[in-house]
């Protein structure tokens, strides 16, 4: 009898395990394309958590559903169930196993975090004394490209200091570690590119260092991730990851252009609202005027 119970339990665990691994594999498809070196690390960790989570969820809800289906009181059965107050062994087991799982998840997350080597303003220190964080993801990656990012209510402006080029589109060379300096003159904004799985709040009046490595050519979306007031949702920009040659070509062309006013959703929506005069909304901070930049999507 006891042996049979164990066999049944093992069989159930194997089936749940198989389902969980399958869901864990599917979970990659819930995420945007893997466009940065960091995204692969994050997705592996996420898939692991989904696998583990599916197993626990199915185990717990399966037990509950079994009770609901098969342990119902008969219509006229007014008796009580067995008087079981607890079981020390069982309680120790279900305290110890979650504790060990937590340790496992924490260690895995810690390792992933170190490999990602995410930087913030506070980690602005010489390369030599931060070996724990500066472990490069890929030895073949070329040295950094430096870009200044300015986030303000409600526009993104990117400046390439070496060529003195400004743009409202973020262009990045593929397979090269990008080093960004994030700045905000007004409120907290969030620098977030879902396809890269990276995010950093930009605290006003600070220079915040930020790094990641794009690995896939294409066009992605940068969104403000920290609520920044009225036109917060409109504060987006395109991110173009291209080959080294295309990137150099783009920079050179942009450097030749005279600055012109870039299209800006917040500014144009505000202008429309002012035109109509009959405002349906409440007072708002006035958006910054459309930024004057060398390159913007309409300047082609």
């Amino acid at each position: 009898m006891k042996f049979k119970t164990i066999l049944i339990l093992v069989a159930i665990a194997l089936i749940l395990g198989a389902i969980s691994i399958w869901v864990g594999q599917i979970s990659y498809s819930w995420l945007p394309p893997q466009a940065s070196a960091e995204s692969k690390l994050v997705d592996n960790l996420f898939s692991f958590l989904v696998t583990l989570g599916t197993f626990i969820f199915l185990g717990v809800t399966g037990t509950v559903m079994y009770s609901v289906l098969f342990h119902r009181a008969g219509r006229y059965d007014l008796s009580d169930g067995p008087h079981i107050e607890g079981n020390v062994t069982l309680e120790v087991v279900w305290t110890a196993i979650p504790f060990l799982l937590v340790l496992w998840i924490a260690v895995y997350s810690y390792q992933t975090y170190q490999e990602m080597a995410i930087r913030g303003a506070h980690m602005h220190m010489p390369e030599a004394i931060e070996p724990a964080y500066a472990k490069p993801i890929d030895k073949s990656i070329e040295p950094m490209t430096e870009i200044e990012v300015e986030a303000k209510q409600w526009a993104w402006i990117f400046r390439y200091p070496e060529q003195n080029v400004t743009s409202t589109e973020l262009h990045l060379p593929v397979d090269r570690r990008a080093h960004l300096i994030l700045r905000s003159p007004d409120v907290i904004h969030g620098f977030y590119i879902p396809a890269f799985r990276v995010k950093q709040d930009i605290i006003p009046q600070q220079d915040m260092d930020f790094e990641f490595t794009p690995i896939r050519q294409g066009k992605y979306r940068l969104r403000d991730s920290e609520y920044s007031g009225t036109y917060f949702a409109a504060m987006q920009a395109d991110v173009v990851v291209e080959s080294k040659e295309d990137y150099q070509k783009w920079l050179a062309e942009a450097a030749r252009k005279m600055p012109s006013a870039a299209p800006n959703q917040a500014a144009s929506e505000y202008a429309q609202r002012e035109e109509k005069a009959a405002t349906a909304g409440w007072a708002t901070i006035i958006p910054v005027p459309a930024p004057m930049v060398n390159y913007h999507p309409a300047s082609k």
């Binding site: 717990v60 037990t63 342990h71």
Partner: peptide, 20 residues
């Protein structure tokens, strides 16, 4: 998750074998 897990498992065990 450890102390909350204890509670969840305790509720599941309470239901188990009861007369629902």
């Amino acid at each position: 998750s450890v102390p909350t897990g204890i509670k969840v498992f305790a509720w599941v065990a309470t239901i188990w074998g009861g007369k629902l």
